[in-house]
Design a protein around this nucleic acid. Structure first.
Lengths: 191, 191
DNA sequence: ACACTGAAGTTACCGCCGGTAACACTGGTT
DNA sequence: AACCAGTGTTACCGGCGGTAACTTCAGTGT
């Protein structure tokens, strides 16, 4: 007899399997079947579909944000940090494309207005990055508003290139990393 | 008795009204009711929901791309062109937020893999922009791959900032335009 | 004048979705 | 023995995208 949190974890694992196999449009029935149970149990554990998706997304978002944070702390200059972060992002896409698709497509659509739930991971990354930029030693003091606009712009830039790269798998990752890093660094070194 | 293309245009106009009133999740029933007819007629004209959404999106995409193209042709230096284009983008968001939401959220989700239909307007903008960058006089000859990555990055950057701005209406447009323009210009003027 | 055709439009349905109410089963507590 | 409390089920609801089958009616050939 598993505990409640174990059960919950196993349900999330099942949902994860389905999403990775069938893409980000998994239905509650299919997820329940994969977990070997029926729908109402899912609803008792997660409230509604948004709740399940939030829980599932939260897990991957924390993982991805963890990688990005670690990359942002890379020792070396601004260039090394930038390159490491971009590379971490694109590597995550390469390793689990379905998860990435789930994060950027599905988790952002489930009307984040009503509850301040997940709010899309690009947003969260942008908000964190804004803090990082404000305190980046190589940049000096940056106006908070400027940091916000820049951070969300940079996050969106990396995301858009990642999306584009998803549909152009022939392009080597290193090439994309190089171009993006160069573009970003040029943006940082303003006159 | 209206002709077929008139009918089609009036149906699209009805769909447009519903989307602008109720947001981008309009159902076929509601759209049909708004048009004063019933569902099967919509399906005879547009095939399926994706077809209607494609047609509706195509219209707005052409309009928005037209504005952006015009802004890209602004006389003056690279800065004037950049600023005008960013301003055109944000102004379009400001004027019709629901349409913008429809374009970035809905029109990109309807599985573009099967048919090469709309493919999201950010993608199209990115592809066009890549051409523009390759031939931008102020930049000289740019490697095609570099132009592609940059263009999609820039398109994503502007889009992300636009999305963020949608949820922060207190920030004046001019401020966002200024920050974004500055960031982009710095990116262009690489060492 | 009249039957015929074909398009326009309707009603009524299908299967699936997200979500829920109401009912069984089972173990432990008193 | 009686009673929970939790876990699970079946069976349903309204609404969605999508379609089959029927009606209605203007135009046309003879």
């Amino acid at each position: 007899m598993p505990t409640a949190v174990e059960r919950r974890a196993s349900l999330l694992a099942a949902a994860d399997r389905v999403v990775q196999r069938d893409g980000p449009d998994a239905s509650m029935n299919v997820i329940a079947a994969e977990a070997g149970i029926t729908k109402p149990i899912l609803y008792r554990h997660f409230g509604d579909k948004g709740g399940l998706y939030s829980a599932l997304a939260a897990r991957h978002i924390e993982d991805l944000l963890g990688r990005l944070r670690a990359a942002l702390l890379t020792r070396g200059g601004l260039e090394a940090r930038t390159r490491a972060t971009v590379d971490a992002y694109l590597t995550s896409i390469e390793e689990r494309p379905q998860v990435y698709r789930f994060l950027v497509r599905r988790a952002a659509v489930e009307e984040p207005g009503v509850r301040g739930e997940v709010e899309g991971f690009v947003r969260r990354f942008g908000d964190e990055l804004a803090n990082g930029i404000r305190h980046e030693p190589a940049l000096g003091d940056v106006d908070p508003m400027r940091a916000l606009v820049w951070a969300h712009g940079i996050a969106g830039m990396v995301q858009a290139v990642g999306d584009w790269w998803l549909d152009h798998p022939d392009v080597p990752r290193q090439v994309v990393v190089n171009e993006l890093t160069e573009l970003l660094l040029a943006g940082f070194s303003r006159p």
